[in-house]
């Protein structure tokens, strides 16, 4: 039972760490890094779901009867793309924030906003 789920627990650990970075850190870029880790952990979860013991990659070939589940793979392909798109856009906003505030630290930005 416990061993049967160890994979998921690694996922949860990664997810928690990523989530922690997002919330606890004030550096905008680091937040995005945390977000990436967070999302990636979800990807790992999906792929883990897809794994079948003794199965092989889902590319049809003679002599193989057991394949891994292709559906989560497809979903995660899409999700990875979505993730990178989000990161890219986030970075673009950070670059603009840096130009406008000359800082990429949450604290300083909020200070400046409170002043104005």
């Amino acid at each position: 039972m416990l061993i049967g789920h160890y994979n998921y627990w690694v996922v949860v650990a990664l997810m928690m760490l990523g989530f922690y970075i997002i919330i606890a850190h004030g550096n905008l870029i680091k937040k995005l890094v945390g977000l990436t880790i967070f999302q990636t952990s979800v990807f790992i979860f999906y792929i883990s779901v897809a794994k079948v013991d003794g199965g092989s990659a889902p590319i049809l070939a003679d002599g193989i009867t057991q394949y891994s589940n292709p559906l989560p793979h497809v979903l995660i392909l899409t999700a990875i793309v979505v993730g990178i798109a989000t990161t890219a856009l986030g970075l673009a906003i950070i670059v603009r924030i840096n130009e406008a505030y000359d800082s990429i630290e949450e604290e300083f930005i909020q200070q400046q906003d409170n002043l104005s």
């Binding site: 905008l28 989000t86 986030g90 906003i93 603009r96 104005s116």
Partner: peptide
């Protein structure tokens, strides 16, 4: 410029 900051927060 606060729009940028708001947008970033929303993004996260």
């Amino acid at each position: 410029r606060r729009a940028l900051w708001a947008s970033y927060q929303y993004l996260i």
